[in-house]
Amino acid sequence: MKTFFTRTASALVFVAVMLGGILYTEFTFFLLFFLIGCFALQEYFKLIRNIDPDYANISSWHKWGATLAGGAILLTFTGNNFQFAQLPTGLIGWWAAVIFLLVMPIGEILLSKDFYLKNIGYSAIGILYAIIPFGLLIYLRLHAIEIQYTPGGFGTAPGWLIPLLLIIFIWINDTMAYIVGSLIGKTPFAPNISPKKTIEGTVGGMILAVAAAAVYGHFWGSGYLSLRHWIALACIAAVFGTLGDLIESKLKRMAGVKDSGNIMPGHGGFLDRFDSLLLAAPFAWIYVQFFMIS
């Protein structure tokens, strides 16, 4: 019972922080996902240290250089939306990212006791995995896009709309997959990665997430997006969100840990909470660029 109340309380705090950060202002959105990205990158580093002990020997220069490079890359996605010392933060982030990405390998070679080229590769993959997806979400939030919101008209969608829909659709997919799997799930979906996942639960979650998006989009959501966009975004969230969850589960299994962190009591770490979004966000960004912008 104590665990239930702990999980419930932390979940309510999580929802409040997420909604506040996403909806309040552009800056709170940026700050929210900037912090999430940096903390998720640290959890990725921890997983890699458990997977490959050689990575535990990287220098502090490498560790914090990679983190600062990740933060600078997130800053580049702000473009001209924010200013610091009369300079666009996007420009500051771009130059900082270039400097850190050039200097970090040199420092690793000179300062590490044992230099392994693969360690630089691990860090680069971490930036691609845990930083770029959040940067794309920041881009969607800060850069207004003119989209076809009805079959016969165009309009500017709220910047928070696509990121919020992705998170909601992922939550619906995960919740419905758990419920359906608990009720009728029998066939393992990926037993070597996530033994509790079943084909019935996975497919059921996807179908119900898309159905919920279609129903809402048809009756109430046409003022924001056309029905096909509601369905497409739900499909992206369900399919690629599920794959993102499996990727993080594979990393944790290789690392021999249950959770990537313990930032949320009863819910694990940042990667545990946003693993689905890490893969869904890039594909949603691609969809927006190629199929939604007028």
Rank of each mutant, 00 (worst) to 15 (best):
V210R: 02
P191S: 08
A9L: 11
F5S: 12
G71H: 13
I293Y: 05
R141W: 03
Y116K: 14
T156P: 04
I58P: 01
P188H: 01
I106E: 00
G21P: 00
T89F: 11
L32F: 05
H267T: 12
S112K: 04
G135C: 02
V15L: 13
M254N: 14
I172H: 08
I99Q: 01
F5M: 10
G71W: 07
A190P: 01
K46L: 06
D114H: 14
R253W: 15
T89E: 06
W64C: 11
V239M: 14
V288R: 02
L227C: 15
G65W: 02
T8M: 09
A214F: 13
S276H: 08
A212M: 10
A16E: 01
I131R: 04
M18P: 00
N81C: 14
A234P: 12
S182H: 15
A157R: 02
S60E: 12
D259N: 15
T242R: 11
I109V: 15
D52Y: 14
G217E: 06
A130N: 03
M292W: 08
N192A: 12
V257Q: 12
A284W: 11
A72N: 10
L277Y: 08
S123R: 04
Y139Q: 05
S123F: 02
A56N: 12
W95K: 11
Y129M: 02
F4Q: 10
I172L: 10
Y122L: 02
F14S: 03
K250T: 14
E26I: 08
F77H: 10
G204W: 00
I263W: 14
F82V: 14
T175C: 06
Q83G: 09
L161F: 07
T76Q: 15
L68W: 14
Y44Q: 03
V203H: 00
K252G: 01
A69D: 13
L87A: 15
A9H: 04
Y129G: 00
A284F: 07
R253P: 08
I172A: 09
E43W: 09
A211P: 06
F29A: 00
K196Q: 14
T202K: 00
F82G: 04
P53D: 09
L19I: 00
G155I: 03
I263D: 12
G20H: 01
A97W: 00
S123K: 05
K197I: 14
Y44M: 05
M176R: 05
Y178V: 02
V288G: 01
D259Q: 15
G153S: 09
M206L: 15
